[in-house]
Design a protein around this nucleic acid. Structure first.
Lengths: 184, 184
DNA sequence: GTCTATACATCGATAGAC
DNA sequence: GTCTATCGATGTATAGAC
């Protein structure tokens, strides 16, 4: 039972399928090892069509790589940061993994990460009452990055198999000391 | 004034020069973007010679990528780990950066990192008196990895410009709580 | 010991058919 | 809207000259 679909609808669907396939492949293999042909096959279309819609591999990557600008919840900085960590431990969005996977080896991914980190670091720093707030914010960000990398990208068992609750609990004292918060 | 050198000596020198050039290039660009031609040019020799000596790009990478098996100094676990961190903050060896740069996108680098992390995590875990020692060890390792990545690979200013002393000081409470050590 | 020449595969990108 | 055909560039690897 085929649906009636305009050409525009059909195109939107196909474009979305291609983008989803691109996200999955970029997140898994990184920029260099991902080929347009593989993305096309995974989306069930032809390689030429991917180029037709997205123009270039670089443009496809840019569309696939998006970091959410984590807003910092109100309240005590340590708890706010821990709740952000909590959310990312439960399910790190694929679009984020696209950036993380390639940020060490691809300029565009590195740039995207820097841009997001820049805003993110500023907000953390503003919430920390200390003259070395920038360094403290950088350390918190580095901890989160390291944990997410080991858990989702390298899948090291000690972190990949742990519960998000346990990780958050163990890191609470770290975040409290780095944000200059008293323990509670 | 040319030295007298046997062919064997000459060969050792050239091989070493190629390996050093390979380390620098792999560390800077990662596995995929590094070309045999670029390594050869950087070493002042021909591309064919690199292949002649190392057989394949993969083999050259294996020779260039070596993680030192950090031994854990004796004493209180937290201080021992902090002194290891201290050493890595002062100068992370190029051979290590080769592994770190490509570990997210190249299987061989990932394998090398896992192997080193495995031994490393075991030693940390053994030194921590807690039933969840494995997770604690994984978190400590993730923190170090995250900090080194941000400082040396991404060069985020807040970490790249900071002094090793300041970083160690700020992370001391983190390591103490994760190793279950009392502060002192 | 080191270099030249080249085979061979892969991939991004383009042009045009259906 | 989607696919076929193909070009051109790049890079590893091999064979052999000097």
């Amino acid at each position: 039972m085929s649906q009636h679909r305009t050409r525009a609808e059909q195109r939107r669907d196909t474009e979305a399928r291609i983008l989803a396939a691109a996200r999955e492949t970029f997140a898994r293999l990184g920029y260099e090892r991902t080929t347009i042909r593989a993305v096309a096959a995974s989306a069930g279309v032809n390689a030429g069509l991917v180029m037709h819609y997205y123009g270039s591999k670089e443009e496809l990557f840019s569309r696939a790589a998006k970091l959410p600008d984590d807003e910092l919840p109100a309240g005590h900085p340590a708890e706010a940061l821990l709740s952000t960590l909590r959310r990312r431990l439960d399910d790190e969005p694929v679009a984020s993994l696209v950036v993380l996977r390639s940020m060490l080896t691809h300029a565009e991914a590195s740039k995207e990460f820097r841009a997001a980190a820049s805003g993110w670091l500023g907000r953390i720093g503003d919430a920390i009452p200390a003259q070395d707030a920038d360094l403290r914010a950088g350390l918190i960000s580095a901890i989160i990055t390291g944990v997410v990398i080991d858990r989702y990208l390298l899948k090291l068992s000690s972190l990949a198999d742990a519960s998000a609750d346990d990780i958050v609990s163990l890191l609470r004292p770290c975040f409290e000391s780095l944000t200059n918060d008293p323990p509670h």
